[in-house]
Design a protein around this nucleic acid. Structure first.
Lengths: 253, 253
DNA sequence: CGTATTTTTGAAGCGATTCAATGGACGTGG
DNA sequence: CCACGTCCATTGAATCGCTTCAAAAATACG
């Protein structure tokens, strides 16, 4: 039920889920798609709800988060244009594991789980792609798990920023601007720490010229320096033994 | 290629992947299965290898772990009889995200990814089940991620032990014995802490009669007390509201 | 302008790590 | 059998990374 079927097909063609799908399949998917619009702050779906529809973002950005019994919030990630929300829960037959909230105005396409399951029988390519999408996501979550159990806070924050830069980065003269509202609290909930620690860490980076940050916004001036912190480059030669001698003489990037 | 096709079918019937599959499907799966045997300490597969086969454990137990660039090991979980290894990577078309090592002598059935993908086209139920398996695993990893970012070490260890009791617990007079070799180091790598902290924590529990532990073995004497530590019961009035129903379920013998 | 939200900063303290050293359990071979 | 080496577990002491709480400063908004 989309106004311009041709437009929708073109849009779908770019999705991981529809990759390599033939014309008939694309048309069927487009016909089954239900458009949806969200204002900033709106919730698309809530954790522990039965999963009946999944969505693909066509504009804007959503935040996926869990809330613990004690009220702590944990951010599992963000989804932007081209990304899918709820697909694992729908296809896997489980409740949504997270809540999804629009951090800015957003537009989406939704599909009934049952309808897509039906389509998958007729277009096996859809099922195969669905698996690939899920597997990629799975790998990502595992990486985060490993990070969280083995790495220090500073490095986790660095990694989170680099991931965000990849997903939502926009080139500016200053550097890579993360193109969405992002608070210290958000970063803390992404990395399993407190907003205070995030603030201190980023202030220190700002002093070294690595980032520039303001209220709800972050710009990465020296991505390479951040990468050095995130990966374990640079622990090679101990020229000076002073603890705060993190030399900024990194290879240029 | 299994000696007793009837036996294999019966075995497959118990798998999540084959749930609700018709006779023809079961037979086809049984025909495509390749048996495999491992001695304790053998590796079934290594992380970052291309995933060509996946496996189902029929006897014994495997440890799934990742190693970081710095050499830290992280245990992503254990798989026992009925559990699948590598299925996400194979179906999703990614490299194995973990290594799998037998912690005791084990027997498995293996399938070529390409063959199963073919079977999934003829028996859509297989594809649906595959999704369900992956989704369940996904949820599990997300839970661990949330735990790790919000909860203190003692609680994480308690949870890990309860999970292990569910997967590999055996009733004894003393309590629920975790029926596989398990070191302090293992528990530390499951919970993102050090073996020292695990040792101290468990010693304290032992003093309270909650667990009994020895070299490479743990027995949970008071599962409910562990559950109280794991969940946040107990910080309120110990009146009628204590959910006895929340008692950890007794594993299959 | 006042109010609300986000961010910064300081000081105190705890939880957990780190390192070193000891103690036990187990298997092996003399 | 005991002596031995190996692996695993315990324990203590020092320390640090990070949290916690309180309060102030900066920023946005009506």
């Amino acid at each position: 039920m989309i106004d311009a079927d041709g437009g929708a097909s073109a849009l779908l063609r770019g999705l991981g889920l529809c990759k390599g799908l033939d014309e008939a399949g694309l048309a069927a998917m487009a016909a089954a798609a239900q458009p949806r619009r969200l204002a900033a702050g709106d919730f698309l779906l809530y954790q522990d709800q039965p999963a009946e529809r999944f969505y693909v973002v066509t504009r804007g950005r959503l935040r996926l988060s869990q809330v613990t019994a004690e009220g702590h919030q944990v951010i599992m990630g963000f989804v932007g244009p081209g990304g899918a929300v709820g697909i694992i829960a729908v296809l896997g037959g489980i409740d949504f594991p997270v809540s999804a909230e629009a951090v800015e105005e957003a537009e989406l396409l939704g599909w009934e789980g049952a309808a897509v399951a039906q389509l998958m029988l007729q277009h096996p390519r859809l099922a195969v792609n669905g698996m690939a999408v899920v597997a990629g996501r799975f790998r990502h979550v595992m990486d985060q798990l490993r990070e969280l159990s083995t790495e220090r806070v500073e490095r986790r924050i660095a990694r989170a920023l680099l991931r965000l830069a990849n997903q939502a980065g926009r080139r500016t003269e200053q550097g890579i601007l993360i193109d969405m509202p992002l608070s210290r609290q958000d970063l803390a909930e992404m990395t399993g720490t407190t907003l205070f620690t995030v603030s201190r860490t980023m202030k220190a980076w700002e002093g070294r010229g690595i980032v520039r940050s303001g209220r709800m916004e972050v710009c990465i001036c020296q991505p390479h320096a951040l990468a050095v912190i995130a990966e374990d480059l640079a622990t090679s030669e101990p020229t000076t033994s002073t603890p705060d001698a993190h030399d900024p003489d990194v290879p240029r990037g």
